[in-house]
Amino acid sequence: MSDLRVGIGCLFKGQRWVFGHGKWLGLGLLPGLITLIVYAGALFGLAYGADDLVSWVTPFADGWSSPWQGLLRTTLTALVFLFGLFLAVITFTAVTLLVGQPFYESLSEEVDRAEGGEAPESGLPFWRELWVSARDSVRILVRVACYGVLLFAAGFIPVVGQTVVPVIGFCVSGYFLCEELTAVALQRRGMVLKDRLALLRGHRAAVLGFGVPLSLAFLVPFVAVFLMPGAVAGATLLAREFTGAPEPAPTPAPEPAPESAPSLRKD
């Protein structure tokens, strides 16, 4: 339970940190807004064409009588859209981080400085960092797609597919969402993808406490844009918790002024 509280606490602390530093909040909205516009168009297209796609892949149901044909295709259309929404929630963070790479790196460094007085640096050139981030994001998305296919298939199981599967889906999305966000701070600490995943596995409760509420919030389009800078800040705080970053050194108290020696002069 304590790990769960750590994850939730870092999520709220990150939002509070960014809203207390208006400059970083303002600069962080643009990458998320650009990504949101692109994704909104893609989801609109999916919603518009999902029924045609389902009809195309289920020609065997053309001769079915009512209501079975409509029930099958309506269910499949809803699942296709939910699968697309699931992927959008996961990939939104990766794409936004790539679009806003320089800003989010600077934001993460500033949080580290504010909390501990120093900001670790990877030492890699900017383009190399961008390539590593893109490559790792693709690897994560492949994993997410595999989970998504399994969950999509499990969605056809009566009762379980409508109750348990969505819960598992949000846990999966929250877990990998947290990985994408903490990667900004952990890459600066020299951790490769394999090491980052091992670190997260050792703190599953904290990862879910951070990622699941955030993935639920990201379902609301404009909320995702406004929460993204704070999510990066909170993930940096979480990375500090995982790696045992030192607490800021207390400000030393001023030394008392030396007392003047008593005078030995006699009047």
Rank of each mutant, 00 (worst) to 15 (best):
L208A: 06
F210I: 10
L193N: 11
F210G: 05
G202W: 02
P213T: 13
G190P: 02
A206T: 07
R201C: 08
R204W: 08
L216Y: 00
L197K: 12
D195E: 15
M191G: 03
R196M: 08
S215G: 03
V207W: 05
R204N: 07
A206M: 06
V207R: 07
R196Q: 14
L208K: 01
A205C: 01
R204C: 08
P213M: 12
R189M: 09
P213C: 13
L197I: 14
G190L: 04
L208H: 06
V212Q: 00
G209E: 01
G202D: 01
D195A: 14
G211C: 09
S215L: 01
F210T: 05
L199T: 10
L197W: 09
G209K: 04
L193K: 09
A206R: 06
L208N: 00
F210Q: 06
G209I: 06
G209S: 07
P213F: 13
V212G: 00
G190V: 04
Q187N: 15
V212H: 00
D195F: 02
L199Y: 02
G202T: 04
A198M: 07
R204I: 11
G209M: 04
R196W: 07
V192S: 12
A198W: 03
Q187Y: 10
H203G: 02
S215V: 05
R201S: 12
P213L: 13
L193E: 14
L193M: 13
K194V: 09
G190H: 03
A206C: 09
A205K: 07
L199M: 09
F210C: 07
L214A: 15
L214Y: 13
L216E: 00
H203D: 04
P213I: 12
R201K: 15
V207E: 05
A206L: 08
L200T: 11
L193T: 11
A205I: 01
K194T: 11
G190W: 03
L200H: 15
R201Q: 15
G202L: 03
V192Y: 08
F210N: 06
S215D: 00
R201A: 12
G211T: 10
A198R: 15
L214F: 12
L193Q: 14
Q187A: 15
R196N: 08
H203T: 02
G202R: 07
A205H: 05
S215F: 01
G209T: 06
R204S: 10
G202V: 04
K194Q: 12
R204A: 11
L216F: 05
H203S: 06
D195W: 05
V212T: 00
R204T: 14
G209D: 00
G209A: 06
A205E: 05
Q187I: 07
R196K: 09
G211Q: 05
V207D: 05
L197V: 14
K194R: 13
L214P: 08
A198I: 03
A205N: 04
Q187H: 15
L200F: 13
L214C: 12
V207M: 10
L208M: 06
Q187G: 14
A205L: 12
